[in-house]
């Protein structure tokens, strides 16, 4: 039996672990990058960027440096200085926009289609082989095909989000609809509730928790995939930004991007978790 854990004690322990982790990181790098300052002409160093300034070695940033950089980035997240220099907020907004667009279209397709599949055992059996073959395909494997057929990199990224987030929603909707209790359907039938009334008042609410679980899995996958897709597609978005900072060898920015991606992913999951709670029912 697991004992009940008080929330503040867990939070306290989390903070301690975080402090230990960051402190250890900070201490481990203490003195490592302090090799007597820049060996080269400072003007030349500035020209070549940070890499040259430390003699070709890119030091792992200390948490304190990352913190300073984070503050710097967050104090002006929405600036736009040309196509290659935009605030981190703008980049995240681009990524979110693509994810929500691709996910939204996927939901519009998957939920009605899943409904039909769930209602019809014949369609279910007929479409199942296609779903089972397409579902495990890595989203990035679609990318070349998307780029070739669509010919627009931004739309291709949205397409990849669409194609990878459609499967969990489709399968969960179909399962949720097909698993609706026989007795509830019988109630609707004996009441002569029509097809639409039965669909919206009985089947949809009954399947809603399962559908929401599928949506939650889907948005998680979509957010995973967008970073990789934007690295390939380029231009804008947090994935592109990560790749750009890698080319700049600014490791601190990459660490910040990882943190941001994690936080946004958490927020998306929590939002759908709230929605799931709103439609949950128990007997």
């Amino acid at each position: 039996m697991q004992r009940e854990v008080s929330a503040w004690r867990a939070a306290l322990l989390s903070l301690v672990i975080l402090a230990l982790f960051l402190g250890g990181w900070e201490l481990a790098l203490q003195g490592a990058g302090q090799g007597g300052g820049p060996a080269l002409d400072p003007e030349y160093a500035a020209l070549l960027g940070q890499a040259a300034a430390t003699g070709g070695q890119t030091p792992m940033p200390k948490p304190s440096e990352i913190g300073r950089r984070l503050f710097q980035l967050l104090s002006d997240p929405f600036y736009i200085r040309g196509p290659n220099d935009q605030g981190i907020g703008i980049q995240i907004a681009w990524s979110l926009g693509r994810v929500l667009l691709g996910f939204g279209i996927a939901a519009l397709v998957a939920i009605p289609l899943g409904f039909v599949i769930g209602m019809s055992p014949l369609l279910n059996a007929a479409l199942n082989p296609f779903i089972q073959v397409l579902r495990p395909v890595s989203p990035l494997a679609w990318m070349p095909l998307a780029l070739f057929t669509i010919q627009d990199s931004s739309i291709s990224a949205v397409f990849v989000i669409f194609i990878c987030s459609i499967w969990p929603m489709l399968l969960n909707t179909a399962f949720g609809v097909s698993a609706v209790r026989r007795e509830w359907l019988n109630v609707a039938r004996t009441l002569e509730a029509g097809t639409w009334r039965t669909a919206f008042r009985v089947i949809l609410p009954a399947a809603a928790p399962t559908i929401l679980t599928g949506m939650r899995i889907s948005i998680g996958i979509a957010w995973l995939v967008i970073v990789a897709a934007e690295m390939l597609v380029g231009g804008t978005g947090i994935g592109y930004w990560v790749w750009n900072q890698w080319n700049n060898l600014s490791i601190a920015d990459i660490c910040i991007a990882i943190l941001m991606i994690g936080l946004v992913g958490l927020a998306l999951d929590r939002l759908l978790g709230l929605a799931a709670r709103a439609v949950a029912w128990n007997e």
Binding site: E183, V187, A206
Partner: peptide, 28 residues
């Protein structure tokens, strides 16, 4: 086929759990 003329009281209550008692009756 099923008809509103013939109401059924099921073995399990067969109420839908996301509706209140009133909504269950109002649905019928």
């Amino acid at each position: 086929g099923p008809s509103l003329q013939h109401a059924v009281i099921f073995q399990g209550h067969a109420l839908v759990p996301w509706m209140t008692a009133e909504q269950n009756v109002a649905f019928a």
